[in-house]
Each structure stands twice: as structure tokens, then as C-alpha cells.
Design a protein around this nucleic acid. Structure first.
Length: 505
RNA sequence: GUCUUGUUAGCUCAGCUGGUAGAGCACGUCACUUUUAAUGAUGUGGCCGAUGGUUCGAAUCCAUCACAGGACACCA
């Protein structure tokens, strides 16, 4: 890329002039002795002192210049570091001879990262500031910052150039701090419960553990294709077979599907597996997990999400079939009858693929009439076996599985079940999935013979759960696009890049 | 994938029924030692997303494409 923009040229020239007068525009000699937040905190008593200042205190702060107000022989600037914003008062007569007019006014500008030394004082307008006696340039910015008042609002720029977004929109940092905390708290919660964090492969010979289209990559030395994982599930269960009794993995999954407000091609989830437990234990630990998160994030349990108010202290639990009538308003007499459900859905103008089973039709009813109504956290339990290819059958009713999904604000947040550990049953279900694949369902599970073999050695009764971290963070931060909780969301290439790629192929 | 809205200066945006482009901020110059998006004066700054078409003439109308936002569909 060429720095041909005239503003950039101007600034490069300024950097050159600085070099000529012996000032390194990219100094590596940072002497900061406090952060802005600490400075503001420690000096909050200065307002009560004589002349609202304390010349005996001396601080060196640094940050990026966000605003600059030159008023003749004195200037105010606002600098920002990660912790906050500080106003600097700079006067010609407090600085070395010639520095103010020849260096500062001509060669230092908004966007530059500087270091300022001086003492605390409060301005006539009542703002705790720093009275500077030295200013040093640390880093010259040769690209100008966006407009100081409106900043950068264009979503495309904000997503593609997240660094600019972070410079200009301090609030964005909050979202990503919450995200970071959620991940570290999640890790700590499960470790405290005795779970072992593990890392399983992201390049799979068979893409299993979910219904999704995988990305394909190629291993040159072996001459074989690999799939980026769509879920870590089958590997984590192999570890339970191997004798670990509680494992979890927090990491990325990759799905080669559409992108929209709730789908990014790579997304983060936690999956955990717990031997000698059932999905009922998972309901308990999930409630504890949310309580733990809210405690440590210092969030109120009632949070706004768009038009809703979600009460995270009110978890409820209801079997899927029951929810169809009590929450979805579907007549209870039809929910166990294939033909009647099909007729009902048709009467609501919902088109169906032919040949759906009863369980699949019940799933359709749920999606159409129940899901969006689940605002407060709700565990939907007892899923039909046809839509739960990896879950264990209920001992009482072979048509349903020991499974739940957790819904909050009308969205699925977690999926959990008592794991299927009968290797013959698992084999049969894989075969069913393969039949579905043959008949055109390219998201059906693939046969994983090694996984079947693992199960054949015996996996203790185990419960497992996955939680979508991105969507959880969206809920906690009241964000409605997954791109707002991903530092670098996937974006289509701009035209030039795309052409280059095509040429290489 | 479908529908819809947008793309104009570094940024935020105007630009009517077609007559070859405007503001604010930023930047340059000048003034100004307690400002808060500082202020006043003055100046520079543009391949109007791309390609075609209609027209004497297109930022403006039409078509195609690209990217983005929103909605819907699909999807554990």
C-alpha cells in the first residue's frame, strides 16, 4: 500500500523534520510512572489545596492525543490511555525554549502518542488536569484520526478496522472486556468444579459432533484433506472413555454456512463432559454457572435485551412436548399425531419438507410457536429422539431423549444431554444419518468408526453440554449482532483481494 | 439465497424534476496563556463504489457487478 493520501504525506514530512532536529518520532524510551485512571484517582484531593494544585507531586503519563486546543501561548490537549482520558495544560513558558512554537505547535498533532510530565492541578472549569513541564513524542501517527465529534460510525469501517473503532469508541472496549471476563470466569468456574481443561484437534479427518457443513483444508505432506472441526464433542467423549471424568474445552468451531447477525464462520463455545452425571445434574450446574457469572461480572440479574427484560434469577424447566401447548398455544390433542401436526402447520402457512417423522414435526412446532417466546432462561427438556442423534434415550420412554436446550431471549444458548453410550445404538443412529446424507441432507452426521470403537470399550454414563460463548456475550452486553462481540468478525474481501485470489487459482 | 436501504473529501453528512460538487470537523496560514466538539479570519482538499447504457450533457435516470446495513428464508 502506498501512503499517497495528502494528509499522510504531510505527516510523514513532519516525522522527517522531527528526525532532522534530533527527535525520534518512534521513540522506544517510555518513562510513564502512572496510568490516567490512577492519576485521576490519586489526585482527586488536589481541588481542595491552595490554588487547586500540588507542585510537589510529579507524574509522567502517556496516551494518544484525542483533542487539541491551541490558544496562542497555551494549549489544552486530551490524551487517552487504556484506563481513561486526561486533560493536559501546556504553556509556552513552562517548556524548554522554542519547544512550544517550533516543535509542539508545528509537529505534534491529534493521533500522536505522547508522554507528558508535570504536576496535578484543577482548571478554572473544575477539571483535574496535568500542568505539563515536558512533552515527549513516543509515536507519530501518520494517518489522521477520524472526525473528533462523530468519530467513526460506519459499521463496515468499524468491523474491518477494529483498531480504529477501538481508538474512537471507548465503549467498544467495555464489550470486549466483558467477553474476556466471561471466558476467564467460565474457565475458573469449571476448574473449581474439578474439570480438566483439554485441547482436542481442530483439524478433523471426519467432521462430526454436529449437523453442519465443514470447511475443508489440505495437508500437503500427507496429500489428504482435513476438515476444520464443527464441534469437539466426539473427541471429548473419547477422553471420557479413556478415564477422565470431567473435561472441558473452550475454543473455536468452524461452520461453512451463511453469515448473519447470529452466525460467524468461526465461533467460540465451551463444551464440557461429566462422567457419572445426567442432564439433570447439568441443569443444576448451569444455574450455578450463571449465578457465578453474574456475581463476578457485577451485573444485575435483570438485564435489558432489546425490547425484553431478561430475569436471570428466574430459570424454569419444561418438557418440549408440554411447551408446545402451554407456551406455544398448539392444541394439546394434536402434538402427538403426525397427520394432525402436518395439517396444523399447513393451516398456519408453514411449508414442510415431505416425509418428516413425528419428532421432526414436533421440532417444527417448537421452532414456529415456542422458541421466540422463551425470554427468561428456560430449559426445554425431553427432546424427541429423531432430532437428537447423539443423546441418550430415556429409560422410561424410548421416543424421547434425556436432553435439554437452554433458551434465553428467544434464542438457544446451550444444548446438553445425557450422552448416548450404547455403541450399537450409536452405530445405528450414524447409519440413519448416513441414509439422510445419501438422500441429500449434506449436514447429516458422518459415520465415525473410530468413535464407535471407542464407545465399544465402554464410556461411563456421562452428561455433556455446549454453550455458545458469542451468543452468551451478546445477551450480557445487549448486543444484537455477533459482529459486535467479535474483535475481528469475518468480512467478505474487498474487490481487489478477491481478484488476486482468483488469479492464483 | 430473496427482498430492501446505502456507497459523494481523511471522518460525519447535504446535494430536489439531469446542466460537470457543498457544509462541518480535520489539515495549511494568521490571531489568541484556563479551554471543554475552544473561538475568529483565511486557504488547500473530490475518478461522486465499479462497469456499461440512455442523453447534447449523468453524482443524479436505467442495467449489471462489488461491498455494507437491515429484514426474511435456510441452519442445532
Amino acid at each position: 500500500m502506498a501512503f499517497e493520501n495528502k494528509f499522510i504525506q504531510q505527516r510523514i514530512e513532519k516525522a522527517e523534520i522531527l528526525r532532522k532536529v534530533g527527535i525520534n518520532p518512534y521513540s522506544n524510551d517510555a518513562q510513564r510512572n502512572t496510568t490516567i485512571a490512577k492519576y485521576l484517582n490519586v489526585n482527586s484531593d488536589v481541588a481542595d489545596k491552595e490554588n487547586a494544585r500540588d507542585e510537589n507531586r510529579h507524574y509522567i503519563v502517556s496516551g494518544r492525543i484525542k483533542l487539541l486546543r491551541i490558544m496562542g501561548k497555551a494549549s489544552f490537549l486530551q490524551i487517552e490511555d487504556e484506563s481513561g482520558v486526561l486533560q493536559i495544560y501546556l504553556a509556552r513558558d513552562n517548556l524548554p525554549e522554542g519547544f512550544y512554537n517550533d516543535i509542539f505547535k508545528k509537529l505534534i498533532e491529534v493521533g500522536d502518542i505522547i508522554e507528558v510530565a508535570g504536576y496535578p492541578f484543577v482548571t478554572g472549569q473544575g477539571e483535574l488536569s496535568l500542568h505539563a513541564d515536558a512533552l515527549k513524542l513516543l509515536t507519530k501517527a501518520i494517518s489522521p484520526l477520524p472526525e473528533k465529534f462523530h468519530g467513526v460510525t460506519d459499521k463496515e469501517i468499524r468491523y474491518r478496522k477494529r483498531y480504529l473503532d477501538l481508538i474512537m469508541n471507548a465503549d467498544v472496549r467495555k464489550t470486549f472486556k466483558i467477553r474476556s471476563k466471561v471466558i476467564s470466569l467460565t474457565r475458573r468456574f469449571f476448574e473449581d468444579k474439578g474439570f480438566l481443561e483439554v485441547e482436542t484437534p481442530m483439524m478433523h479427518p471426519i467432521a462430526g459432533g454436529a449437523n453442519a457443513k465443514p470447511f475443508v483444508t489440505h495437508h500437503n505432506a500427507l496429500g489428504i484433506d482435513r476438515y476444520l472441526r464443527i464441534a469437539p464433542e466426539l473427541y471429548l467423549k473419547r477422553l471420557i472413555v479413556g478415564g477422565f471424568e470431567a473435561v472441558f474445552e473452550i475454543n473455536r468451531n468452524f461452520r461453512n454456512e451463511g453469515m448473519d447477525a447470529t452466525h460467524n464462520p468461526e465461533f467460540t463455545s465451551i463444551e464440557f463432559y461429566w462422567a457419572y452425571k445426567t442432564y439433570k445434574d447439568l441443569i443444576v450446574i448451569t444455574k450455578e454457572y450463571f449465578e457465578y457469572l453474574f456475581d463476578h461480572l457485577d451485573l444485575p440479574t435483570q438485564l435489558p435485551y432489546g425490547d425484553f427484560e431478561v430475569d436471570f434469577s428466574k430459570f424454569s424447566e419444561i418438557p418440549l412436548i408440554e411447551s408446545l401447548s402451554t407456551i406455544g398455544g398448539v392444541p394439546s390433542e394434536i402434538v402427538n399425531n403426525k397427520e394432525k401436526i402436518a395439517d396444523f402447520l399447513k393451516s398456519k402457512n408453514i411449508t414442510l419438507k415431505p416425509g418428516l417423522t413425528l419428532g421432526q414435526l414436533q421440532g417444527e412446532l417448537f421452532d414456529a410457536f415456542v422458541e421466540k417466546k422463551l425470554i427468561n432462561p428456560t430449559f426445554i427438556t425431553e427432546y424427541p429422539v429423531e432430532i437428537s442423534p447423539l443423546a441418550r434415550r430415556s429409560d422410561e420412554n424410548p421416543d424421547i431423549t434425556e436432553r435439554f436446550e437452554l433458551f434465553i431471549a428467544g434464542r438457544e444458548i446451550a444444548n446438553a444431554f445425557s450422552e448416548l453410550n450404547d455403541p450399537v445404538d450409536q452405530l445405528n443412529r450414524f447409519e440413519g444419518q448416513m441414509a439422510a446424507k445419501e438422500s441429500g441432507d449434506d449436514e447429516a452426521h458422518e459415520m465415525d468408526e473410530d468413535f464407535i470403537e471407542a464407545l465399544s470399550y465402554g464410556m461411563a454414563p456421562t452428561a455433556g453440554q455446549g454453550i455458545g460463548i458469542d451468543r452468551l456475550v451478546m445477551l450480557l452486553t445487549n448486543e444484537h449482532s455477533i459482529r459486535d462481540v467479535l474483535l475481528f468478525p469475518a468480512m467478505k474481501p474487498i474487490h481487489n483481494e478477491e481478484l488476486n485470489q482468483e488469479e492464483e487459482v
